[in-house]
Amino acid sequence: MPIVIFQLPDGTERKVTAESGTALMQAAVSNGVDGIVAECGGNASCATCHVYVDEQHTALVGPPNGVEEEMLDFTAAERRATSRLSCQVRLSDALDGLVVHVPEEQV
């Protein structure tokens, strides 16, 4: 049961416990984390579940996949080297303690 920490744009943070195997987006949405919109429900069609992975964890989380890679060019907030669509990040025990930053806007 990995724990994920969402750093919100207002400076506060949300700590949520997620099931291994679920998507990072799902962990956010199920726990009502503000700023993860996820309009398309996890199909990498909408680019509204954008997060910045904290630099200490980028290597562990890995790079975006093919479909996600192109969608990241169209996020509302600027794309950075640490950008991922949270619907494409699968949580596991190895990612326990993961820190991600929620951008200012998703639409």
Binding site: E39, C40, G41, C46, T48, A76, E105, Q106, V107
Partner: peptide, 10 residues
């Protein structure tokens, strides 16, 4: 900015 529903969801 609040997400609207015009494109549907899911």
């Amino acid at each position: 900015h609040r997400p609207h529903l015009a494109f549907g969801g899911g």
